[in-house]
Simulated scan of single mutants.
Amino acid sequence: MNIEIQYLNLCREILDENQTEIAEGRWTPNRTGTGTVGVFGRMLKHDMAEGFPALTTKKLFFNSVKAELLWFLAGRTDLEFLHERGCHIWDKDAARNGGVLGPIYGKQWRAWEGANGRTYDQIAWVIDQIRQIAADPERPNPNARRLIVNPWNVADLEAMALPPCHGPFQFHVKDGKLHLALWQRSADLFLGVPFNIASYALLLHMVAQVTGLQPGTFTHYLNDVHIYRNLVDQVRLQIAREPYPLPQLWLNPEVREIDQFTMDDIQLVNYRHHPAIRGEMST
């Protein structure tokens, strides 16, 4: 089933299962002060052969998806990198934390500090392992089921403006294809999840290209899946729309290393979408 249909069905499920709570104003409290309704433990799955999963029932701001992912991959945690690329999605989180974000995703992906005093580049390691498997798929690799990148560094959580909502994630190589599964502890279904889907689908394509594989499937495990009180009407508008065919992704074929990608090397092709639906992010 098309991932957008799966996503819209999940939106409907949450609204249907929580009709009484919404009508009576019984919202689940959380750290933001804006109540939610939701479910726990769901899964979305997409085959990249069906197109790139940029949802079409509202406009996805793909430039911000690209900028944030390149920011993570650069190991950066400063706002300057994002602002130079016109992305301001982390500004409110930084403002709540004295203007800084702390050791969030990029730091953990590229420079995890171990208790032994060593620093670990998880992205470089996982790409090296994938390349070894791709080069000799018949040879057993002890790390074949350990292709995991984890941003949840317990020692650094208190210094983060926001503990990771998404990750760890795991790659898998089979029959010349690269697959990716993501675990997400907290999922803002209207604002965050479409962005997360596109971001990790993009990461899958990029890693597949630099390792000589084809992108396979993306599996998204969502734990606390919720809709914020101030976004219920926006969700109702979105689920009333008919999806368009999914677009395609173009990556510059000359890029062969993960750190060489730029904004111009990543483009959506034939992205037909409904108008944007604005909503305030709860922080």
Rank of each mutant, 00 (worst) to 15 (best):
V210S: 08
T32V: 04
A95T: 05
N153C: 08
M160E: 11
C87T: 01
Q238V: 09
L101R: 07
F195Y: 15
H226L: 07
D47R: 02
G117H: 11
D259N: 13
Q170M: 10
L8Q: 14
G117R: 10
E68H: 04
N30R: 04
V207L: 14
G99A: 06
M43Y: 00
P151C: 03
Y7V: 02
N150E: 08
P140L: 04
A94N: 02
N141L: 03
F195H: 15
I227V: 15
Q234I: 02
V154M: 11
S282V: 01
L237C: 11
N150Y: 03
L69A: 05
Q260S: 07
T57P: 01
A276Q: 13
L237H: 09
F218T: 13
M206L: 08
T56C: 01
H205G: 04
F190N: 14
P245R: 00
M281A: 11
R278Y: 06
N153R: 08
L8H: 06
L191F: 13
V207H: 13
Q122L: 06
G98T: 08
G25M: 08
R26N: 15
E13H: 13
P243R: 12
N150T: 07
V149E: 10
V65Y: 04
P142Q: 03
E4Q: 11
T219P: 04
R272Y: 00
F81M: 15
D91Q: 11
V210H: 10
L189V: 15
A95P: 03
H46N: 04
K177V: 05
R76A: 15
Q238L: 11
I127G: 11
K58Y: 01
I148E: 08
D136Y: 09
L101N: 08
M48V: 00
P163R: 05
N153G: 01
P151A: 01
E21S: 13
V193K: 14
V149P: 07
A115W: 08
E21L: 12
H179Q: 07
P215H: 14
L15N: 08
L178P: 09
D47T: 00
T56V: 01
T36Q: 01
P151I: 05
E17M: 10
V269G: 02
L213A: 10
L60K: 02
K92W: 01
A155L: 03
H179N: 15
L231I: 01
R236H: 14
C11R: 10
Y244C: 09
K177W: 05
M160F: 03
W71Y: 10
P53G: 00
V149R: 07
G35Y: 05
R12Q: 15
N141Y: 06
V100T: 14
G75D: 09
E113Q: 15
A187L: 12
T28V: 09
L15G: 07
I22P: 02
R236W: 09
E84S: 13
W152N: 10
G99D: 08
V255Q: 10
F218H: 14
D224V: 05
E84T: 12
G99Y: 05
F40H: 09
A135P: 12
R241E: 14
R76H: 13
P142Y: 02
Q234S: 13
Q184N: 12
I197W: 12
N196R: 08
T36M: 03
I127C: 12
Y105G: 05
F62A: 01
H274T: 05
K92H: 11
A54C: 06
E50G: 00
Q129Y: 06
N153Y: 01
R131T: 14
C165S: 11
W109R: 07
N9Y: 02
D136T: 14
A54H: 04
L231H: 15
T219I: 13
